[in-house]
Simulated scan of single mutants.
Amino acid sequence: MPALLALLAPFQFFNDHVLRVGRWIAVVCIALMVVFILIQVFFRYVLNNALPWPDEAARFMMLWMTGLIAPSAYRRGGFVAIDMIERALPVSINRLLTLALLALSLMVLLVAVQHGNKHITSGCLFKTSTLWLPFKFEFNVPLWPTNLDLTLCTRQNWTFGFEWGWQKMPRAVVFASLYVGVILLIVVNIELILRQVIALLGGSGRLRSFDDPNLQNSGG
Rank of each mutant, 00 (worst) to 15 (best):
V108N: 15
V108E: 13
L110G: 03
L110S: 01
V111R: 04
V111M: 10
V111P: 01
V111G: 04
A112H: 04
A112P: 03
V113H: 02
Q114T: 11
Q114S: 13
Q114W: 13
H115Q: 10
G116S: 11
N117A: 13
N117Q: 05
K118C: 08
K118Q: 15
K118M: 14
K118A: 15
H119N: 08
H119M: 13
I120A: 02
I120Q: 00
T121D: 03
T121E: 11
T121L: 12
G123C: 09
G123P: 06
G123E: 00
C124E: 04
L125V: 09
L125T: 12
L125I: 08
F126L: 09
F126C: 10
K127I: 01
K127D: 04
S129K: 14
T130C: 04
T130I: 09
T130P: 02
T130A: 12
T130S: 14
L131Q: 08
L131A: 09
W132L: 06
W132V: 14
W132P: 03
L133Q: 04
L133H: 01
L133G: 01
P134Y: 11
P134N: 04
P134E: 05
F135I: 09
F135W: 13
K136T: 08
K136R: 15
K136Y: 12
K136I: 11
F137D: 11
F137T: 12
E138A: 10
E138S: 11
F139N: 03
F139D: 05
N140D: 07
N140S: 11
